[in-house]
């Protein structure tokens, strides 16, 4: 009873917030609604007993990805009202994508309900969440998992290479040089005769 109420509440909030992501006029508000969607999805995960996945969703998507979204959206100086004026010209391609997605979702739903080819890939209901995840990721599918890690590493190095450039005339502080400096390097005592400058 309580589970059913929670499920419908969370599902309703998730869908309504997802709709508001598209409908909100202010892009910052859109990101806020997106965060609410993630959060409700995490709640749904907890209802299904996947508390590890739920907390990872909150940590990674809400705690890191959405913060970066907010950073970018807040600092972009784009006139979003102007962008929306070209709405009609994007309608055909947008509608096409929407129809493809809808058909795909209906297909997935239909196969699930008819029960065709439905099989559980991994059943580890006897273990706790984290143990089950660890066993699947690090033993059964270790190669694929590490390949995914490498893809992310390559993307990260790519991003660093794109921004790493040596500009002329930029002075940077070298922390090691700074710490290796002694009093003898930095201070010079000069005995100045009266009436004469340092010269």
């Amino acid at each position: 009873m309580l589970v059913a109420i929670s499920f419908y509440l969370l599902a309703f909030v998730a869908i309504a917030a997802a709709f508001m992501v598209v409908a909100a006029r202010n892009p910052v508000h859109s990101v806020m609604w997106l965060i609410l969607t993630f959060f409700s999805a995490a709640g749904l995960f907890i209802l299904m007993g996947a508390e590890f996945l739920a907390l990872l969703l909150v940590m990674v998507y809400v705690g890191a990805v959405a913060v970066l979204f907010l950073f970018v959206v807040m600092m972009l100086d784009v006139d979003f009202v102007e962008l929306k004026q070209g709405f009609l010209s994007y309608l055909p391609i947008g509608g096409l994508v929407a129809i493809i997605l809808l058909v795909e979702m209906i297909l997935v739903g239909a196969t699930y309900f008819t029960g065709a080819n439905a099989k559980t890939v991994v059943d580890r209901s006897d273990e706790s969440n984290i143990e089950a995840f660890g066993r699947v990721l690090y033993t059964d599918y270790a190669g694929v998992f590490e390949a995914a890690g490498f893809v992310l590493l390559v993307a990260m190095i790519g991003a660093i290479v794109l921004t790493l450039r040596d500009r002329e005339g930029v002075r940077k502080q070298n922390a090691m040089d700074q710490m290796a400096r002694t009093r003898e390097d930095g201070v010079e005592l000069v005995d100045i005769e009266p009436g004469q400058g340092v010269g």
Partner: peptide
């Protein structure tokens, strides 16, 4: 006393960042 207590604390404290960024904006 949940099984993923440490993760929960990390997740909630990462949510705390929002109060700062939203407040500033």
């Amino acid at each position: 006393d949940i099984n993923v207590g440490v993760l929960y604390v990390l997740a909630i404290s990462s949510l705390g960042v929002y109060s700062i960024i939203i407040g500033g904006w």
